[in-house]
Amino acid sequence: MRISYAWIFNKRFKMLKQKCLQAIWQCSALIVLASLLAFSINYLRNERLHLFGNWAPEARLMDSSGKRLDISLPEAKKLFLQQSVVFIDARPQDDYEKGHIKRALCLPWNEVDRNFMEVTEDISPDTPIITYCDGETCELSHNLAIFLLDMGFSNVRILKNGWALWKEEDLPIESGSSTAGQG
């Protein structure tokens, strides 16, 4: 057999090409296999995930009956000045103590089961409540609002990215745990 550099490289190139083609069809087959398995398992699941979910901001901030839960900053400010609303901070207690909306109560989402009764005992079920946390993608206020609705409070709204917006507008804030309703 005649061997030359060209022969070796040619052979290697051919084999590499063959292997790459093999890898490409295997990748496609893996994706198809995974999709089929995933869809079948999702179909058999009790709580199915919709294949094409509605992720528009309005849809995400709705309760189960389709009512919008979010509230705009001017509206929240108006209610705050009328003193007719209770703000509830859903962030962890450390963040609350560093600074929060004036007169806001502290009910961290991760300790909601423990502190819920204590924090909400003075609030009547039809009192307007606004939950807030910090950041565009923060889910804490949304989770807390759904939880409060489930617990029987009828007028719960969410101020999305509330803490950041409130600070930007230079609206009244305070720090410490004085109005936390808990230790």
Binding site: K19, A23, I24, L30
Partner: peptide, 25 residues
């Protein structure tokens, strides 16, 4: 839905050594 299943299948294939070029890529 698909990504976790893909990771699971790839993980199993890595363990058994099946379709290695595709899994590795």
């Amino acid at each position: 839905l698909v990504l976790p299943m893909l990771e699971l299948i790839m993980g199993i294939f890595f363990w058994v050594g099946f379709w290695m070029p595709g899994s590795v890529m």
